[in-house]
Design a protein around this nucleic acid. Sequence first.
DNA 1: ATACAGATTGCCT
DNA 2: GGCAATCTGTATG
Length: 204
Amino acid sequence: MADSPDLTDLLGRPALEVAPRLLGAVVAHGGVAVRLTEVEAYDGAEDPGSHAYRGRTDRNAVMFGPAAHLYVYFTYGMHHCCNVVTGPEGQASAVLLRAGEVVSGLPVARRRRPAATKDRDLARGPARLCRALDIDAAQDGTALVGGAVTLTLPDRFVPEGHVRTGPRVGLRGAPDRPWRFWVADEPTVSSYRPARPRNRGTGR
DNA sequence: ATACAGATTGCCT
DNA sequence: GGCAATCTGTATG
C-alpha cells in the first residue's frame, strides 16, 4: 500500500504511522546524504518521553508547527539531534532520525566525524547523524520542502518484512508501544543502549 | 535561585 | 563495561 511515496503523504499523520515510512528515505545537507535506517516516533500528546509533553516552549516550538519541518534540539551540552515534524499542526508529533548510512559525500562526512573509525559509524546514532550532515540549531525549523535540508522518500517503502520494531525502554510511564523502527540486517543501526542511571548523589 | 536529569557520545580501564 | 563532558529545561525552596 501507499505505493506513491511523497512528502505530502506525511502531512497530518501521527508519528507512529510516519516513522516506518521514513526508513530508506534520504536526508541531505551540507554536501552529505544519509539513507535512514533507524527512526523513533514521538507524540507530544501521549508520550511522556517527548520534549513536547509538558507543552510548548521556545525549544520545542517547531514541534507544534506544521509538518515536513525539521526540529533540531541541543542536548547533553554538546550534541544536536534532529526530527521530522509529522503534524498535524498543534499535535507536536515528530520522528527522531536515529541512524543512517552515508550514501553521498563520504569524504566530507569522514572529516566531520574523526572519531568514527568505520564508515558505518559515521551516522550511527542521532547526534552522529546530525554531525555528519552538519545539522545544528541553525537548521531548527527548516522546511523540508524547498529548504536547505532535503528529505527524499525512497521509490518504494522498505518492505514490512524488513522493518523491525521495538518498544523504548528507560522511559517512566511510557506505554509499551513500538516507538522505534529500524531496517533489519543494517550495520548502521545503532545498537540499543539502556539509559545510564545516575548513582553519584554524594553532594560533594 | 539552586539542583538534577536528559531522545548521547567518546575515551577510560 | 563505566563514566566524564557540558548546557538547557523542569522541579523545588
